[in-house]
Design a binder for these strands. Sequence first.
DNA 1: TTTGCATTGTTGTTTAATCAACTATTTATG
DNA 2: CATAAATAGTTGATTAAACAACAATGCAAA
Lengths: 151, 151
Amino acid sequence: MELEKGLEIKDFISLINGRVSATINRHLNRRFKAAELGITTEQWSVLTCLWEKDMQTQQYLCDHTFKDRASITRLIDVLEKNGLVVRMADPGGDRRINLIHLTEKGIELETTANKIIRESIELATKDVTTTDFVTLTSIFKTIIGNIEDEN
Amino acid sequence: MELEKGLEIKDFISLINGRVSATINRHLNRRFKAAELGITTEQWSVLTCLWEKDMQTQQYLCDHTFKDRASITRLIDVLEKNGLVVRMADPGGDRRINLIHLTEKGIELETTANKIIRESIELATKDVTTTDFVTLTSIFKTIIGNIEDEN
DNA sequence: TTTGCATTGTTGTTTAATCAACTATTTATG
DNA sequence: CATAAATAGTTGATTAAACAACAATGCAAA
């Protein structure tokens, strides 16, 4: 991509690198708080993996949330402290592994959380066509591919 | 936007809400570190405003970096500690205001930093057309508008 | 003029990301 | 089998964001 007049470096970075992301994050965290969900969006992203399929390793959660191991360790610490998940031993006997298991309380959060998320997405993407979103997704994948290849 | 098959909520959030942003941030911060620039991308975003026009209030820097006042206070603390900027009194006599002024050291960083940023953008946007980028920018603006209006 | 409101900036607390160094366990290989 | 290398997770230090509460200053309206 050629950077041309009207496409300033600062705008590029500001848009791609955090502004949208931060705005949505702030918005969602406020909604979570208002609904007294008791979780943050980061914790939600971990729970999302488990709602899809329970009993995953921390490494699996790293790969699917794009967070690093240290971050996942600490998020699981919080979720465990708040009684939403528990760390379990691998039935297969691999003692390096923790399997993360949803508690009842963790399972019950799904409905409310997803309702809030859906509402927010609808709000955010009012006037955004599905076609546009496909374009956006594809650009993102290109960018991530370009960067991760070289790192 | 209707969420359809193939456009999972999780994907939406993962893409919009942090993954691209985090990846680029990580990439840039590593480059900055490798080049021994001595600043982070967050500090760079503040400096960018000052390189464009020196002697701005902290409030101006908030508005242009989309950070809140507390964040700017602390970023300026760091930049000042590292000798890149100084807080100055308003010549107009408004004692609520700090004017942030680039030091020689702060001015000198621009060339090197911008070189790294340009290289990274070229790398990241290899195979992204300008048209695509315009689409992306417009979607972002819509989304931000939708959310900020209601908040 | 003074009283109230708006603006600017700071501070404390909590949450989370990054990076590097580390432990424990498992697997490969020589 | 023994040793090296890979994998899984933890911990400490540093950076930064969000939110709320706060202080100081400036301005406007009664």
